[in-house]
């Protein structure tokens, strides 16, 4: 069931991208996306994800808010006449442990104000994050833990 829905969504994206909203094109897009999903049939275990759509969307909203904020903050730092930066790398203790979640968290961190994920420790306990302003290490840690990590836990657990 979810696979049909997914291929329907992909078909809509196809229609949007190709830019001609005819029935024939929709059918072609459906066939194409079904084929594409068939290719990755072994990796598909997307059952039960639909109820979480709302929470995923809220994560997306948070992401765009943070992106706008982050670009603004970087702009402010750049335009400050006297630039006294205190850059540094801090280790963020991870609560999420699955590969997918760590990847998502790392990407989200990169687009938040003043932080950029650099590396994951070998035992996956820490995410090394480069920050423009490292004068107070605890503040960004708290922000990430209470913001993105919490949302990710809500959306995918």
């Amino acid at each position: 069931m979810i696979l049909y829905l997914l291929s329907l969504i992909l078909a809509f994206i196809w229609v949007v991208i190709t830019g001609s909203a005819s029935l024939l094109n929709l059918i072609f897009g459906f066939a194409l996306s079904t084929f594409a999903l068939w290719i990755v049939r072994d990796e598909m275990s997307a059952r039960g994800y639909l109820p979480r759509l709302g929470r995923i969307l809220s994560l997306l909203a948070l992401f765009f808010k943070e992106l706008a904020l982050s670009a603004w903050k970087v702009a402010m730092v750049v335009l400050r006449p006297r630039m006294d930066l205190k850059p540094g790398i801090f280790a963020f203790p991870l609560t999420v442990d699955r590969d997918f979640e760590i990847t998502l968290l790392a990407n989200l961190i990169t687009l938040t104000p003043g932080t950029m994920s650099v590396d994951v420790s070998d035992d996956r306990k820490f995410l090394y994050v480069h920050a423009i302003d490292c004068s107070d290490v605890e503040a960004p840690k708290r922000d990430i833990a209470n913001g993105f990590e919490k949302k990710i836990m809500e959306a995918f657990r």
Partner: peptide
């Protein structure tokens, strides 16, 4: 290397 202004490196 990172710049001299770097304050912390927990890596």
């Amino acid at each position: 290397s990172m710049s001299d202004k770097t304050v912390t490196n927990e890596m």
